[in-house]
Amino acid sequence: MERSNHDRKIHVVICSGTTCYLMGAAELFGIEKALEESLASRISIEGSPCMNLCKGGSYGKAPFVKVNDTLIATATVPKVIEEIRRQAAM
């Protein structure tokens, strides 16, 4: 039987290259504290080495965050939370 989507883990990867870190990634660690317990327990947060998305500008601007497969450019606390909620509701 397929697992219910509501148990599916949400994996948040925060790029921690120097550029992303300076441009706001440093503020994103601890983001789970802004979520209610039932949702916070479903997400895992991890820092990643530079994902090389900042070079050239074709992916947008730093900081970059991936919520499962969705890439967020110029990531902010509200943007990341919105995406987490969107995926949680799927």
Binding site: T18, T19, L22, C50
Partner: peptide, 17 residues
Amino acid sequence: TEELGALLVAKEIDVPH
């Protein structure tokens, strides 16, 4: 601290690398 960060980013120096 921010200014040092800016120098590193401008020179494309990634500390963890």
